[in-house]
Nucleic acid binder design. Sequence first.
DNA 1: GCGGCGTGGTCTATAAAAGAGACCTGGGCT
DNA 2: AGCCCAGGTCTCTTTTATAGACCACGCCGC
Lengths: 135, 135
Amino acid sequence: MKPGYLHGTDCRPVAEILSRIGDKWSVMLVMELHDGTRRFSELRRALHGISRKMLTTSLRGLERDGFVTRTVHPTIPPKVEYQLTDLGRELAVPVRALGEWALQNRARVLVARERFDQAAATHAAVVEPDRQAVR
Amino acid sequence: MKPGYLHGTDCRPVAEILSRIGDKWSVMLVMELHDGTRRFSELRRALHGISRKMLTTSLRGLERDGFVTRTVHPTIPPKVEYQLTDLGRELAVPVRALGEWALQNRARVLVARERFDQAAATHAAVVEPDRQAVR
DNA sequence: GCGGCGTGGTCTATAAAAGAGACCTGGGCT
DNA sequence: AGCCCAGGTCTCTTTTATAGACCACGCCGC
């Protein structure tokens, strides 16, 4: 076996962490919170397309893993503020790099997808169905 | 609304890309392929814990999005090689940063989780069940 | 000759996660 | 009184992730 980066180590422990910090909502929440403290409704407006359920779940996960603090102010209406922790600010470095990369390169990815999908469609039309398995 | 990073833009387009590049198996595959061309079985051995199904699916997704090339050598036994593309090498920069961060900080995350879970358990034991909703 | 092993997958069934949005309490405003 | 806001919870549905059996075929050891 070639000595590679992971080199045969059990990946599941680190995979578990990656599931959290690579999650799309987590990436966007960390990016938004990097700009300062935010309330629940502010985050909801910032992340167009996220449901209340997913916002709560994602924030809860980030809080659980130590990236975010949640501060409830005993006011009416209720005021809850979310903020990055020290660990969260450290995480923000690679997370923002990833998010920025996604924003800046989205078009190139979509072009590649289209090419791939067209090639696959062309290939499907040419090859007998029972031979398609041999890609 | 506070002017934040995302500032009310529809997040779903970039979320879609983030789903791909933030996916735990994608992160680990890109990290491994950054060290050089690999065969399917080599990747399988490098990523302990991944099933054949997930390896195929993840590689296919990375190929589709233009991060990876797949080269079939007409040999027996079959030899298929995977390699990062230019786009893939560019992506490797933030992806490796994220993966490295996960490896180096996993312990801190786990500690935070334990603390949170203990605090939650303690809180649950103290509060009347019907009041737990008010966190 | 036969069985086991390797290659690189596909496929089916199951489990888990992601997600939508109705609903909740209570106060402020019209 | 009705509508809006805050910050969620909850139930149900959809989607994704996952395990591992199975495939063809050649090589190798017995």
